[in-house]
Design a protein around this nucleic acid. Structure first.
Lengths: 187, 187
DNA sequence: CAGCCTCATGTCACTCGATGACATCAGGCT
DNA sequence: AGCCTGATGTCATCGAGTGACATGAGGCTG
């Protein structure tokens, strides 16, 4: 594994992000991304299932991380309490990610319906995973689905708030504030 | 407007639904759908933006209906109460839709990630619309987003339950039961 | 009634995303 | 030295989606 410049996947990710930001997702061809990364278009599709997937690298790890946090909650915790633990656990996942990177990525995704679709299905996958983890704890399916749906909803809102917040506001604070707002909402 | 068989859009919708159900979304070409509907592929794209959109006809009306219901809630109703009114209003939107049709459509969508993506973005659009309607009532943006996110989550779960329920269980009952489960969850 | 206009559709040509089949070649292994 | 492996390049092809232009029935106007 060394004949070519290593790290093709990483170069493709960087090139794609740059080009999507520069001229927009639709006005960027896979061939252009591949060129900038020094490979062919065929190689692009060997690393990423499609033109969108190149922007959604770490989503599986996030999912695993939150599921693990949910599973680690005390056995006698209520469904909402377990989900809350999972949402809070997202903080340390994003802790080391420069907020400016997150902003740029979010801006690109927000500007293209196709990319928004892809992000939404990642969130849906997260919802399904959390619901499954809840059922594993003995929570009734319908209740598990509701709790997962709710938790991911809170996560989405919190993430958007974090993007929009000043750089000195830590993500944990944003999440806790959002959870508090949610409590007030349903009180 | 009468030289050709009228109702091309409707015929295309029927043909697409049939073919997607018969052989799957990916193994169906737009040319085949158009053939069955008696038009050309070019005409398909004059009626529908892309191959998926043909399955998501009434989603704008649903959105308008729920937004109207939310707006019609008493001015002093809480955000969650207003959202609850909107979710309940979906009942009369689906009242006249044969449940078997809904089941078939849901099965096709569930079997194809691409179609799930499209459905998710319709739900996201609904979320945005409800949040906007809440802000119009003077609800704070972050709270509006949370309430809308929550309401659509409940709607999703209720709709799935309705699909799975026996034919003699009215949709209103399913929605009310889901709302009750949600209350219990956050109590 | 002739001529014109409109507008949904057909036809043609083209770009680009995505995939399968096969070739290539550096490095490791026997 | 010869073989195997795995990432990549090359070639061919399908299908989605779009722009430009042609066509022809029905309605409208003079």
């Amino acid at each position: 594994m060394g004949r070519w410049e290593p790290g093709a996947a990483g170069r493709l990710r960087v090139a794609a992000m740059e080009l999507y930001a520069e001229r927009g997702f639709d006005r960027t061809t896979v061939a252009e991304i591949a060129d900038r990364a020094g490979v062919t278009a065929r190689t692009f599709f060997r690393h990423f299932a499609d033109k969108r997937e190149v922007l959604f690298g770490g989503s599986e790890q996030l999912e695993e991380h939150l599921v693990a946090a949910l599973a680690a909650a005390p056995a006698d915790a209520s469904p909402m309490a377990a989900v809350t633990a999972a949402v809070l656990a997202s903080a340390d996942y994003f802790a080391d990610l420069p907020r400016e990177d997150a902003r740029r990525r979010a801006a690109v995704i927000a500007s293209t319906p196709e990319l928004r679709e892809r992000e939404l299905i990642k969130m849906a996958s997260l919802t399904t995973a959390l619901a499954g983890a809840l059922r594993d704890r003995g929570v009734e399916p319908a209740v598990a689905a509701l709790a997962a749906e709710t938790g991911v909803g809170v996560f989405k809102v919190a993430f958007e708030r974090w993007i929009a917040a000043p750089d000195d506001v830590p993500i944990g604070d944003v999440i806790r504030a959002t959870l508090q707002d949610f409590s007030a909402l349903t009180a």
